[in-house]
Each structure stands twice: as structure tokens, then as C-alpha cells.
């Protein structure tokens, strides 16, 4: 059971990191408030479940959609901001969202929301390993969507905006609209993650979605390699598991994430396995050496 709990938590952070990677990695919009959308998804799903009796299976996609809609609105506000001011604004959004949850009676106030129903199928309440399966399916769906996105015109435009907005505009990309799209997609991932979290914990509190959680998510994305799906997956796995593997570190989690963030920025800004990182470049050199003879003979035909 313990392993299932750890795996579910890591899986939820993987969803969050994949979403942030679309906003910050592909589209270059630094968001230091991603946990706000995690929270919006969790509260949406919790309220749907507790107040309206909506079953998990409907609350989950609804949480994704509603979070995406709110993400798009906040994204629209953010399109007028750049780099530093965007980063600071997203931190502000995170604090505002947490406060709204914390001080509004409708959202349960300081006590949060309890009694969220654990999902069930035909009267059978899911066991933890079964819940893990649901999380894994969501991740697989997220990976599939990401792969499709990267191969699509939409994904190409997002990456163009992220790497050089002025050049993208000069080539016909209306960058503001694409930034909003990136926020909508990335926050949809966060909304689904929030729903998974709420129904797994069955009790949520605004503090779970504060700024430190945002820092954890961005640390995972940066550690693995911002701008690549493999980086998001590896980063969330590594940083999600590390505190469990090294139990004594659990209380220093934030310190560890912060320190890693600083070290990565200094020594490997492309992350552990991002494009341009030491490991990824070496791997490519090796593959190149292995396949070169073939490629040459193919080219001569």
C-alpha cells in the first residue's frame, strides 16, 4: 500500500510537470504559480463531488476543462507581460488563489474540504493499486497528447513563440493567442492532477497548493530538462522519489529542491537529459557513431 501511495503521488506530480513543460518548456512562459491550477482542479473536483454528487469519472474531465478555462483567462492577462514580470505575476496568482480558497466559506475556509468520495466502479470502491492504474492511464493519455502536440502545427507554433517570439510573429504566428492556448493546455493537465489528488486524499486544504508546491513542480521540470517530455518525466520521477528513498531528507524537501534548482541553473541549464545537456549530447554522439556507416551508404544510392 505504501508503494502505491508513493507511486500515485509521483504520478500526480508527473502530470503537473508535463503541463508546466508545455507552458514554460515549449512556449517559454515562466510560470511560478502552477500549483494554483493544481488547486483549482482539486477544488473543482471536490466541490463537484461533495456539493453536487458528481461521480469521480465525470468530475475528473470537468476539473480539467474548468481549470483550462480559468488558465486561459489568466493566460490572457499574462500575454501582456514578459519574463520577470510574468514570473512575479504568476507567483502573485498563486497567493491570490490560495487566499481565496482559505478565506472563502464556499471553499471550506481554513478547514478545507473533506468527505470527497474515493472513486468506485459499479459499487466497488477502487483499491489503491487500482487507483494507481487510473493515474497511470491519465499519464499515458497526457503523454499521447504531448506527442501529438509536438508533431502538430500548434506545437510547432508554441515552440517558435517560446524560442523567439519576435521571429515567430514575423513568420505569421499571432503569439498572444498561442500563449493563451499553451496556458489552457498546460493548466488542463494541472486540473486533472488536482482532481486525482482530491479524490485520492479525500480531504484537501488550500495549503497543499501554495507557492512551495509550485517550486517543487518547476524544480522537477528544470531538473529533468525544460522543453522536453522525457525531461518532465525523469525530473518528476527523480525528485518525486528522492525524498522517499532518502527518508531523512523528507523534512528538507524544499531546501533540496531549491538547492538543486540553483545547481542546475549554474551547471546544467538544459537539465539532466534536456536538449543540449551533457548526458543527452553524449548519447547522441554515441548513436551517431553507431549509425554513421549505414547513413553514408544509404546516402550514396
Amino acid at each position: 500500500m505504501y508503494y502505491a501511495t508513493v507511486a500515485i503521488t509521483v504520478g500526480i506530480f508527473m502530470m503537473l510537470t508535463m503541463g508546466l513543460n508545455i507552458i514554460t518548456g515549449y512556449t517559454g512562459q515562466v510560470s511560478l504559480g502552477h500549483a494554483a491550477f493544481f488547486g483549482i482542479g482539486a477544488y473543482t473536483s471536490a466541490l463537484l463531488s461533495v456539493k453536487a454528487g458528481v461521480p469521480f469519472w465525470f468530475a475528473l474531465p470537468l476539473a480539467g476543462l474548468i481549470t483550462a478555462a480559468i488558465g486561459a483567462i489568466l493566460g490572457a492577462i499574462s500575454t501582456r507581460l514578459h519574463d520577470d514580470s510574468l514570473a512575479i505575476t504568476t507567483i502573485g496568482i498563486n497567493f491570490v488563489v490560495v487566499s481565496v480558497f482559505q478565506y472563502t466559506q464556499f471553499f471550506g475556509g481554513a478547514l478545507g474540504i473533506g468527505g470527497i468520495r474515493y472513486p468506485s466502479v459499479f459499487g466497488h470502491t477502487l483499491t489503491k493499486p487500482e487507483y494507481l492504474l487510473v493515474v497511470v492511464l491519465c499519464i499515458l493519455l497526457g503523454i499521447w497528447f504531448d506527442r501529438r502536440l509536438v508533431r502538430s502545427w500548434l506545437g510547432l507554433a508554441l515552440r517558435a513563440v517560446g524560442q523567439n517570439e519576435e521571429a515567430a510573429q514575423s513568420l505569421g504566428v499571432p503569439s498572444a493567442r498561442f500563449k493563451i492556448a499553451a496556458f489552457a493546455i498546460g493548466t488542463a493537465y494541472a486540473g486533472v492532477a488536482g482532481s486525482l489528488y482530491a479524490h485520492f486524499m479525500t480531504f484537501i486544504n488550500a495549503r497543499d497548493f501554495g507557492f512551495p508546491t509550485s517550486i517543487s513542480i518547476i524544480s522537477m521540470a528544470v531538473f529533468g530538462g525544460l522543453g522536453t517530455l522525457r525531461g518532465a518525466i525523469l525530473g518528476s520521477l527523480a525528485l518525486g522519489l528522492a525524498p522517499e528513498v532518502f527518508r531523512p531528507l523528507v523534512n528538507y524537501r524544499n531546501l533540496m529542491y531549491g538547492a538543486l534548482l540553483v545547481l542546475m541553473m549554474r551547471f546544467q541549464p538544459s537539465g539532466l537529459i534536456g536538449d543540449g545537456s551533457f548526458i543527452w549530447e553524449s548519447r547522441q554522439r554515441v548513436t551517431l557513431r553507431l549509425y554513421k556507416p549505414k547513413a553514408v551508404s544509404g546516402g550514396e544510392k
Binding site: L156, A160, E166, A168, D275
Partner: peptide, 14 residues
């Protein structure tokens, strides 16, 4: 103003 982490081909495709 290149899209630095894209291939040359993808730059043109944009």
C-alpha cells in the same frame, strides 16, 4: 533570431 533548439528544417517550416 533563430529558433535555437529547433532543427534548421523546422525553422523553415514555421
Amino acid at each position: 533570431h533563430s529558433f535555437r533548439n529547433m532543427t534548421v528544417l523546422d525553422n523553415v517550416i514555421v
